[in-house]
């Protein structure tokens, strides 16, 4: 666990985030500091401790699978950046 092997380009690619050269430089420096600070968790006595993912333990909350009112096509497409024939339009995915 060290900040030195932090690869900004690889991480930005995983996050689907285009960053300029300048942004990459600034972020690398700032995240180096933050990761150094976070490294204090190495001292924490976590041997045998169960992880907490939620403050309130809840398991498999389900509801009956019954049809109910939902958005109309127009409502669902209200904020679409691009739409064709009642569908979201996106750049071509397959050749």
């Amino acid at each position: 666990m060290s900040a030195s092997d932090f690869d900004i380009q690889y991480t930005a690619r995983l996050a689907r985030l285009a960053l300029s050269q300048e942004e990459q430089q600034t972020l690398s420096g700032q995240l180096g500091n933050i990761l150094d600070y976070i490294a204090k968790l190495k001292e924490a006595p976590v041997e045998g401790i169960e992880p907490t993912s939620h403050a309130v333990p809840l398991v498999n909350v389900t509801r009956p699978d019954e049809p109910g009112p939902s958005f109309s096509n127009e409502q669902a497409l209200l904020n679409a950046p691009s739409k064709i024939s009642g569908l979201f339009a996106v750049p071509k995915i397959v050749e």
Binding site: L41, A44, I49, P51, T52, S53
Partner: peptide, 17 residues
């Protein structure tokens, strides 16, 4: 990095609770 950061943080979260 998951175990070193995220999983460890979740364990320390248990200690804080």
């Amino acid at each position: 990095y998951y175990d070193a950061y995220y999983l460890r943080a979740q364990k320390v979260r248990t200690l804080i609770r």
